[in-house]
């Protein structure tokens, strides 16, 4: 009986040691992934069909008071899609000085239509709203010559680094 107790105690203490080591190895408490989803939009030249940076005065979501991009040259942009709607529209504004020194402002609206899906990322990060783009087109077509959907799957993106996801939409600009 004494031997059984001693044996049990010996194995229990070793088991406790192992549990402590496993718990130390297994602790994960921080969200190391991203639950932010946005469409990756790349700008191309309509003439050469090659990637080309485009001078942009502003890109602003239709219905949003905040400007997403302001006075910048863009070759690629991350455009977040509305998580509670099936359509998101962005107003794209550029301006140029004409021959008679008059500044001309051009405006186009990029409209993205999609189906929404929800996915579980992790217990720390929670869920994210994914999208599958059905169609994307431009209204106005003063800046944008044409729009193509190169990859309809809109996934999570990380803002800590450069754009790392596959391109979703191509904008061919005049």
């Amino acid at each position: 009986m004494i031997q059984c107790v001693q044996k049990g105690t010996k194995y229990f203490s070793r088991g406790l040691m192992a549990v402590l080591i496993v718990l130390l190895c297994a602790c994960e408490e921080f969200c190391e992934e991203s639950n932010r989803t946005a469409a990756v939009v790349n700008f191309y030249s309509a003439e050469t069909e090659l990637p080309a940076a485009t001078r942009i005065d502003a890109i602003q979501g239709l219905g949003n008071d905040s400007v997403l991009f302001l006075n910048t040259s863009l070759q690629s942009a991350l455009l977040p899609l509305k998580p509670d709607a099936d359509t998101t529209a962005y107003i794209i504004r550029t301006s140029m000085v004409a021959a008679n020194d008059v500044t001309v402002t051009e405006t186009d609206t990029l409209i993205i239509v999609y189906t929404r899906h929800t996915g579980f990322i992790s217990s720390e990060c929670g869920c994210a709203g994914f999208a599958e783009i059905t169609i994307a087109y431009a209204a106005g077509r003063r800046i944008i010559d044409s729009v193509t959907v190169s990859n309809p799957n809109v996934r999570t993106v990380s803002y800590r680094s450069q754009v790392i996801n596959a391109e979703n939409i191509r904008l061919y600009c005049r």
């Binding site: 639950n35 949003n64 929670g126």
Partner: peptide, 19 residues
């Protein structure tokens, strides 16, 4: 999954579809 709120970041946070 149910009762899900996803971040909108540029847009407002919103109740998402159930998984």
């Amino acid at each position: 999954g149910e009762d899900i709120t996803v971040p909108g970041y540029y847009w407002e946070n919103a109740t998402a579809q159930d998984i």
